[in-house]
Design a protein around this nucleic acid. Sequence first.
RNA 1: CGGGAGGUAGUUCAGGCCGGUAGAAUGCCUGGUUUGGGACCAGGAGGUCGCAGGUUCGAAUCCUGUCCUCCCGACCA
Length: 508
Amino acid sequence: MLTAPEHERLFNRSSMSKEITSREQDYSQWYIDLVLKGGLADYSAVKGCMVIKPYGYALWEKMRDALDKMFKDTGHVNAYFPLFVPKSLFEAEEKNAEGFAKECAVVTHYRLKTDPDNKGKLMVDPEAKLEEELIVRPTSEAIIWNTYKGWIQSYRDLPLLINQWANVVRWEMRTRLFLRTAEFLWQEGHTAHATAMEAVAETKQMLEVYADFAENWMAVPVIKGVKTANERFAGAEDTYCIEALMQDGKALQAGTSHFLGQNFAKAFDVKFSDKENKLDYVWATSWGVSTRLIGGLVMAHSDDDGLILPPRIAPVQVVIVPIYKGDDQKARIDDKVKNELIPALKAANISVKYDDNDNARPGWKFAEYELKGVPVRIALGARDLDNNVAEVARRDTKEKASYSLDGLPEKIISLLDEIQVNIYNRAKAYRDSHITEVNSWDEFMQVLDEKTGFVSAHWDGTGETEEKIKELSKATIRCIPLDNKQEAGKCVLTGNPSTQRVLFARAY
RNA sequence: CGGGAGGUAGUUCAGGCCGGUAGAAUGCCUGGUUUGGGACCAGGAGGUCGCAGGUUCGAAUCCUGUCCUCCCGACCA
């Protein structure tokens, strides 16, 4: 029997610890809890903008570095273009401009001054109005194509394969940490080619790079596909995408690669002479992924105890927690860890943290590193040293096992690989079991409401039907999968003839 | 941008109707005991109650405005 104060204490202790809302209870809150309490990001004083905290940024750096290498390996180089785009340039490609017009931040003045009526306060100086407004880039096609015009004269200048790592601003009505914020970080590749075929090949190649990255680094299975005309990037001829599925059954567009045709070349007058000295407009692509991937990563793998990060991009892959009584034991553990384990793991390029902070006890550390999604934890106590073993816990399954200290680094290395594969397989099994073929409207709605996930259904190919379905179900066509099977059928809404199934889902 | 909820110590929250010296737990600091799943004892520091006005002798509390966040909708990566 507990006394009242003891009850009180128990209650407070549990409510005060970094408790995470369960997915079942409130999926959105679970996600927010993970991002905030997992130390990935924080809110800021600026509406719609977040602070990416060191742990979250370390994750982004790992992702960025892996992607950057893949871009370089496919022949691209990095450059940097301005944050501001003069309005006249921005509006040059009409469809692109229209598509983004509703969410642009605009700079109209270049100076503040002291408010004469309100000492100590500043006001916009009406004398300092810009002659031409500057658009804060929501994407950089305009400024880049304006620049490319001066860089491209002949086929010898092509292909031009440039990427930039940057921030962009899209003024969103409703924001969500990482998934949708007013400002976000991304990379945008912008390439120019002599032929349409070459540009299409580039578009598809970069889609493959994204899919490769998502699956093999982030361990998030994705479906490669093409967007419908309605969902296409403003100004593109074709938009290819990778679509991932979150644990609540909603889809997430994880990356896009656009074949821009000659739209931007014509809008910015970018021509080249071919070998026969004939002038033609160049063919273009653009492709991007953003910090949104972090949100997708969190929602694809994590559980009610916290983040689950794939080893290949986890900022800390292994954490070692010493368990000791007194300085003698601590010294023995230190010796083993610092002189053997850490050097061996570091030699294998594994990032390892030894948490011998005496402020927190082991149990607290276990919970903390589980919250942060560190893939592997090694607990090492005096008892283990006597038996020449260590307790190894994996985050993905929460299984614990005792392994001999002989050959432990090799064991950890293979365990990290195993975890990487396991979380991918787990996410894939979930994804695959949530692609449902339906043949009637009732079934369509029922699957969306009850089972969730992707719904594979026939569609008559018209924008009107697509709109109508969106209106009725809040589901959009996520993509027409690449190499889609062609089969005759009837549109799930209109009954009109269809040649293939497309993937619908409610999406982030 | 519309509807709802919220903002008080680092964190989670109480207090608010009914105005009168700012509270709890946890965390933090010091010392000690501890350490195999979120330790314990003793002492201590910490808040212009989101911000700006107003009402009042007096405002965390009442009124007005404004900013930020969450949820639901319309918009979007």
